[in-house]
Design a protein around this nucleic acid. Sequence first.
RNA 1: GCGCCCGUAGCUCAGUUGGAUAGAGCACAGGAUUCCUAAUCCUGGGGUCGCAGGUUCAAUUCCUGCCGGGCGCGCCA
Length: 590
Amino acid sequence: MDFKRALEEQLAQAAGRLCEKQGAAAFAGAVQVVPPKSREHGDYATNLALQLSKTLRRPPIEIARDLVEELKGVDFLEGAEAVAPGFVNFRLRVAASGNILRGILEKGAAFGRSEMGQGEKVMVEFVSANPTGPLHIGHARNAVVGDCAARLLEATGHAVTREYYFNDAGVQMDTLGRSLHARYLQALGQDEPLPENGYQGPYMVDIAQELKSHGGIFHADAFLHGKAGGEEPNPYLHAYEESLREFDGRPIADLDTPFFTRFAASRILQTIDKDLRDMRIRFDVWFSESSLYRDGSVDRALEKLKSLGQIYEKDGAWWLRSEQFGDEKDRVVIKSDGAKTYVTPDLAYHENKFQRGFHRAIDVLGGDHHGYVPRLRAGVQNLGHNADQIQFVIIQMVTLLKDNERIKISTRRGDFLPLSHAIAELGVDAVRFFMVMRSADAQMNFDWNLAKSQSMENPVYYVQYAHARCASLFQKAAEEGVEWKGPEGADLGRLTIEEERALIQALGRYPEVVESAARALEPQHIANYLMELAQTFNAWFTRGTRDKSLRFVVPDDPALTQARLCLIAALKTVLANALGLIGVSAPDEM
RNA sequence: GCGCCCGUAGCUCAGUUGGAUAGAGCACAGGAUUCCUAAUCCUGGGGUCGCAGGUUCAAUUCCUGCCGGGCGCGCCA
């Protein structure tokens, strides 16, 4: 039973009666019932009297008292109290809070999941870093927040697809190919300089070494089978690599930049895929920009815009009518020299998303691309879709602090901290939790030394520790010969003390936390909730050190032990569910 | 010049759709372990929630203007 909703209904009816009695207009607003910040104010509270005071033209505290009178007969309430300036605080009957625990234990891993999304098809496109180098700590934030947003949507009844969009053509990739070419010649002992703005990272030297091992002739089979096995191949990347077969058996000396570009991109994409898998992130689709040109998507999108009258010719170029949808000005899509601008394939890509049946497209973008949002939002509308079918999650910059130095991340200079290094040194759980605990739209500092040297103080361990403690309580109970019998016969009415009630109330709140986090696409709420829950639990746990009657396993009171074990089981379930929602493991011992 | 994001304790940051006394960690001072895991807990100091107006019964939260920091502005990608 959802007591919050039930209370809202009761209050709405009570408000109706009060308004009628006074001949006032019916209350039009929504009744708000919230768990108060302070536990002293009970399990739930409402501000209804404050809202009603205007229509009823009476002091809010009087109305609050009337509301208390109106709700006298509600069976699941232990008490209701009117307090200044006009809040009404409610306490649930103990039996009612017992029902919350039963509900959690019944649902288990499904507790907190909902059908809010009603199966809406949503695409979350994130990371989408071009394959010019391995992922670094800055990308990790995008990767984790994007993945957690996807997890939140999945948990709330959306049909989610994770997609990685990469640009494998254009100037950047050309530079990459020429950089590899230079490194290859250097590997052969030639004095070849890197091209201007070339990619200087050490990973390019490694890729050149691998190419050198082919002995002057490109062997497609050696290339395709030469990677570390274990995981099943990523079908999208595999297809991308297969395209290198066209160069099979050719002398590498005869090959030009396109070959080197594709070779480098293949290897780098493999690295990226591996790092993401290590981060527990798996993409459903890897989408190459160049495929949009090959399969005619770009031309079709332009045709559609033309037939809708959304592009026009001026000064020899074609312009998108984006200003009417809130963009700063109209944008060029075909330059006067006939080339497309960078927005063009992106329009085609988003059209493609909707063609594939997605109802909503979520783009997780780095803060340095935020200026791009208005034109993309406009472009989607130019293509005939609604503005609310595209949403953006903007990930602000991560500044890396290492040895008290701010490191400006640059893939081109090879001046960055690889994600793989962070995973190895700090662990996936810590990196994920750290990246998801802050609001994505504020810049953050990533203090490497702190994260490493004081990793034990990282909040992720605090939360995991709480989960491990729950597990160990069951072990302890077993050692003392207590067998937990589950919630059926348990007398949950024994859970009467304030700490127990507080914990139950916090647990019952979880589904709403998930829904609001999913709605806002803000996974940091889950991390904050976890820390609060762990704190509430740890504080109580320690009190058992002093006062044995506050322990969970109370040998001379089997009924109380059974009831408290139900509470612990529910807590463990919620901790595990919430940790799972942000992709962090829930260990049984630490 | 224009646009977007941020500004909360010494530091790093939380703060659900506006609500009651603004929170946590680190740092600082002190205390708790015959322990159901001390990777823990308790106590204390520390705040004009950038500034000024406005809306509201009520503003850290919404609106406007200013100040400070970051990012972005192209027929570049």
